[in-house]
Amino acid sequence: MAVKVLRRRDLTVWEKLYIPQIASGLKVTTAHLLRNLLLHSAHRLGLLQNRRAAVTFQYPEELRPLAPRFRSRHRLTVRDDGTPRCVGCMLCETVCPAHCITIVAGEHPDPNVEKYPVRFDIDLGVCVYCGYCVEVCPEDAIRMDTGILDVAAYSRDAMKLDIHELMNPSLRKPLTACMLEFPHECRLAGGEVSTRDHQRRN
């Protein structure tokens, strides 16, 4: 790979004098202060409503509105019978540039569905939030519309979402009980495939 050396522009004499630069910086700050002071006072009086002034959000108590196409934490959409809409086609696993999706497919009891994921993990510690997985999915089975932004954990392992958390975004670690009624690879059962209801394939 060729190395390109970028030279920083030398300062002019005017810039080296320092004091004029401080003055011009203060000018910008003061202009913002006065403008916001004026606009917020005017808004109080019901005037100039169409001009926006700077505000501070009290995050996390107060949440910023998200654009509809904003990419937040993933979820898996669910069929009426409680199984995931995902058919385990592994296209998202294939397209994911970060290689953070792990899918193992199994036989769905309904031959018209045929296939579904017994395991579906996303490692959010690795995910780059590109949204390709959503775009490639032929079944509208994975979405990034939960609005959840506060993805944080104390360990890398805890950054891994499994099928429980993906199908029910309100779940937060540590998970205590498994509510899924179909066979899946269950962290609560030590990563074994739980066979609560249907049989696993073969």
Binding site: V87, G88, C89, L91, V113, E114, K115, P138, E139
Partner: peptide, 9 residues
């Protein structure tokens, strides 16, 4: 429209 679940895909 089975390509996503079809092993031949």
């Amino acid at each position: 429209l089975d390509c996503p679940v079809c092993d031949q895909s």
